[in-house]
């Protein structure tokens, strides 16, 4: 008796793991977007004197950091089609998660860059590097080290936030779990299983980041 009720849960496990892959895919794609956007916006917000660039970047951060992810997600998925912009659910989820997380990443980037002593920039410029060269070769190379720990937190948040995209009818981990619950009425077991899978994903992510951090520090730079 007991076993037969649990059967859909076990049978669903395969599907659950399969859909964990969708979660991973969305998250990785969103992560790439988030890093690109975060880097550009973070640099754009370094210099308030450049009014237009600074203004656009700040408005982006204001909106994406200041409103709930869920609201943004629904705006993108349900209300954009009114303007004849139809995005597949997967793309929508990826873009939204990426932009949302990018607003946080941009602040991490900006903070890390601004924490680098101004003398580094001056030394680089005074030897003849352009601003871009100095930024790339000297400043960002050092700032990256300081970004890694807070980025780790941000990526974990991104993985967890990806659960929300199940609401866009994407069959990710969470969505699949709910389908199983609908058949089996076993919400405790299913939710625990889902939580466990998320835990594995976030643990892998944070271990990976720790490894990257170790690699980067090998240079022996002590500050």
């Amino acid at each position: 008796m007991e076993a037969s009720v649990l059967t859909p849960v076990w049978q669903g496990m395969g599907g659950l793991l399969h859909d964990a892959l969708v979660t991973v895919e969305v998250t990785v794609a969103a992560l790439a977007l988030s890093c690109c956007v975060g880097l550009l916006v973070g640099i754009a917000r370094l210099n308030p004197k450049n009014r237009i660039v600074y203004g656009v970047a700040s408005t982006y951060v204001l909106f994406f950091r200041g409103t709930p992810l869920l609201v943004q997600l629904f705006l993108l998925f349900f209300d954009l089609p009114q303007f004849n912009i139809m995005l597949p659910a997967f793309t929508c989820g990826m873009i939204e998660l990426g932009l949302y997380s990018g607003s946080y990443v941009s602040e991490i980037v900006r903070g890390a860059i601004q924490s680098i002593d101004n003398g580094q920039m001056e030394a680089a410029r005074s030897m003849g590097m352009s601003y871009g060269q100095a930024m790339r070769i000297i400043i960002l190379s050092q700032a990256v080290l300081r970004m890694v720990p807070p980025l780790g937190n941000e990526f974990i948040a991104l993985i967890k936030n990806s659960a929300l995209i199940s609401l866009l009818t994407i069959s990710d981990l969470m969505h699949e779990g709910q389908k199983i619950i609908a058949i089996s009425y076993r919400s405790l077991e299913v939710y625990l299983a889902i939580a466990l899978i998320y835990l594995v994903l976030t643990t892998i992510a944070s271990q990976a980041l720790r490894q990257i951090e170790k690699r980067l520090w090998v240079g022996g730079m002590v500050q």
Binding site: D117, G119, Q120, E122, A123, A124, R125, S126, M127, G128, M129, S130, I138, S141, Q142, L145, G219, M221, Q223
Partner: peptide, 23 residues
């Protein structure tokens, strides 16, 4: 900007606080 950067290569600056590239 470009000519200025080129000219800066001929002007070496040594700072009180060294400003060596730490990485």
């Amino acid at each position: 900007e470009k000519e200025l950067n080129a000219l800066r290569m001929h002007v070496g600056m040594v700072f009180q606080s060294f400003n060596l590239f730490l990485h």
